[in-house]
């Protein structure tokens, strides 16, 4: 008597390892994800950062004041923008500068466009509110050096003589020009 061929009823695949890995990756990406700060969502320009050799230095994320020099994507003009990571310091600082009191009242503005004179005032106030605040210059690599030079002079006048230039790491395959 011939043996009856076993009928395959269903195809069962053990999904456990797949799900394990998926959740592992999901956890990793969820925990490492850093969302845009409120200040960044308000800006109307993107900064093309200059590239520098990769190293281990990182931008401090606490008590940092960032002065951005960006080129507006719509109008194409260059301007200084000021923002701070410490929220309570921020509202204290802009509340004390006359030109920005309106921004302080709305309680939502996290980045202001400022002239050089206004920056001088903002930086001075920042130094008063929290002298340990660190400064970073985040400038577009296409802006003329004059903008940075003037800003460094303002920083010098306010005794903020140690600051950081924000850069992107240069990809390793691209040799320095």
């Amino acid at each position: 008597m011939p043996k009856l061929a076993k009928r395959r009823v269903g195809f069962v695949l053990d999904m456990t390892p797949l799900v394990d890995i998926t959740f592992l990756l999901l956890t990793f990406f969820m925990l490492t994800a850093k969302f845009k700060s409120e200040a960044e969502t308000q800006q109307r320009f993107t900064i093309v950062r200059p590239q520098a050799t990769a190293d281990t230095s990182r931008l401090p994320d606490r008590d940092l004041a960032i002065i951005k020099i960006g080129i507006d994507t719509v109008s194409g003009d260059t301007a200084y923008y000021y923002e701070m990571t410490n929220e309570s310091d921020w509202f204290q600082v802009i509340g004390s500068v006359e030109q920005f009191q309106q921004a302080q009242e709305s309680q939502r503005v996290r980045q202001v466009r400022a002239s050089l004179q206004e920056l001088d005032e903002l930086i001075r106030r920042t130094r008063i509110v929290r002298p340990t605040t660190r400064f970073a210059i985040d400038a577009d690599r296409r802006v003329r050096y004059r903008w940075v030079e003037d800003l460094m002079e303002v920083l010098r006048q306010n005794r903020a003589t140690i600051f950081n230039f924000v850069t992107d790491r240069r990809p390793p395959e691209q040799p320095p020009m």
Binding site: S57, R156, R159, T161, I162, F163, N164, D168
Partner: peptide, 15 residues
């Protein structure tokens, strides 16, 4: 996710 975070170049200027 962007895994590349910006790095910094520290500068010191005379006061």
């Amino acid at each position: 996710t962007t895994l590349i975070t910006p790095q910094v170049m520290e500068m010191t200027i005379p006061p």
